Simulated assay, not measured.
Amino acid sequence: MTTDDAPESRMTREVELLWGLDASPPRRGPKPRLSREVVIGAAIAIADAEGIEAVSMQRVAKELGYTTMSLYRHVDSKEDLLVLMLDTAMDAPPPPPRSDGDWRAGLEEWCRGALELYRARPWSVRVASSGPPVGPNGLRWMEAGLRELVGSGLPVGEAVQMLVLLSAVLRDTVRLEADMSRAARATGTTLVEIEHDYSVGLRRVVTAEEFPTIALMLEEQVLEQGSGAGPPDRVGGPADELEFGIRRILDGIEAYVRAGEGTGGPSS
């Protein structure tokens, strides 16, 4: 097999897809009503309303009033459509560089921004990722996060590892929150009410002898804190309390860099 005959890698395919390198030259005459952007927009509208499970080429075609074959002129497969949807979902600009150079504040802002995007479109954390971002929007967010991590004193290789960790924490927390929200809606309750009911239920079975630490948690009413108050947009899910964990990760980065005396930290 010659090099020219070698199958195209998935990553190469995604770069071409997300940067429009596979697009045909524009035709003369009126702009067609159906385009790749229109297909992506319709797919995202379905996912926003019904979840990613509802998205299919057939369903998108039906929503747009076209045949499924018409969509394949603009998007080759559902796999390609999901890739395009994911990058489009990150179309909000990431935080710009801080004028004060405060990398911690910059990373906290980055995490809040990414969390807001994930919570606005929780279906995005359910799409399987084939690797690091390669699309324009994903790369902008990656660049912004790496910029702050490198600003902490980490070498870029270790900064990449920490960005993967932070991204995983954000995505998995939103995924858990979405699962809990779905269960709450099924029973006609809210996440805040579920937290309260959980505490009530545990008090019936938890004893200080068998579960001393959980008993302490119930005694200090950890789960009830903020259940009746807090900001009006409080969801009551795990992502509401993520800031504490993010700050502890940043504490670890700061301590690691200090211990390495500016060399990127000691070897593990």
Rank of each mutant, 00 (worst) to 15 (best):
S267T: 01
T190K: 03
V125T: 11
A259S: 09
E116I: 03
Y72T: 08
D4C: 02
R13C: 06
G265I: 00
L202I: 08
T88W: 08
R126M: 14
T12P: 08
I194S: 13
T187M: 13
F211E: 10
E108H: 03
L176D: 03
V38K: 15
Y118V: 12
G262K: 03
I46R: 07
L84Q: 11
R98Y: 03
E177D: 12
D5I: 08
R234C: 05
Q58G: 09
R121N: 05
R175F: 12
P94Q: 09
P155H: 01
D91K: 14
Y66V: 00
L166E: 05
R98I: 04
V257R: 01
A255I: 07
Y256D: 05
A49W: 02
L218Y: 02
A120G: 14
G153D: 04
S56C: 03
L154S: 00
M69H: 00
A47F: 07
R59Y: 00
A92L: 15
P25Q: 11
V150S: 08
Q161P: 02
V60G: 04
S267V: 06
A49Q: 02
R185D: 15
V38M: 14
S167Q: 15
A186Q: 07
E50W: 03
R126A: 13
S99Q: 11
I246T: 15
P232N: 03
E224N: 14
G245N: 12
G252H: 09
W103V: 07
P30V: 01
L107T: 15
L82H: 14
S99H: 05
D48W: 09
G230P: 04
G41K: 01
R175D: 11
I194K: 01
R258W: 01
